[in-house]
């Protein structure tokens, strides 16, 4: 559908990747762990290695949840764009096809201390 208007109507996206000085946004959520009210908003270079993003940026954010230290990253299952997906831990975000404003979710079905 298009905007009903009196003349041609074209919008300019405000959050294009060019506006982030070489970085991009990534959203990352831990399913069924609602101590964290929403998926995290992360800002990183597309050249960041996926393992580094998880270890250096994501892991400290998760520490408040008692399940965090029990995460076995080898058995975690992932969704990207709400579809099943397997990351290449040694690849960059770009090589993993993680685009600007992409949403990643991971599941740890055996861990549910706070939110059942």
């Amino acid at each position: 559908m298009s905007v009903v208007s009196r003349k041609e109507y074209t919008g300019v996206p405000r959050d294009r990747v060019e506006n982030f000085n070489g970085n991009q946004l990534i959203y990352l959520g831990w399913d069924n762990h609602l101590l964290f009210a929403s998926a995290f908003l992360l800002c990183a270079s597309p050249e960041t290695v996926f393992r580094d993003l998880v270890q250096n940026t994501v892991t400290p954010l998760l520490a408040a949840d008692p399940d965090a230290e029990k995460i076995d990253w080898d058995t975690v299952t992932w969704l990207k764009g709400n579809q099943p997906w397997t990351p290449d831990w040694n690849g960059t975000l770009a090589a993993n096809g993680i685009g600007h404003k992409a949403l990643l979710r991971f599941k740890t079905p055996s861990l549910n201390t706070i939110c059942g």
């Binding site: 405000r14 959050d15 946004l25």
Partner: peptide, 24 residues
């Protein structure tokens, strides 16, 4: 989806924090 051209222009405060001039 009814009016995408309108909503792509949204100024979202969290993404704005990572753009000029605040840059995080």
């Amino acid at each position: 989806n009814e009016e995408p051209e309108k909503y792509i222009q949204a100024w979202l405060p969290m993404p704005a924090l990572f753009q000029d001039p605040l840059n995080g």
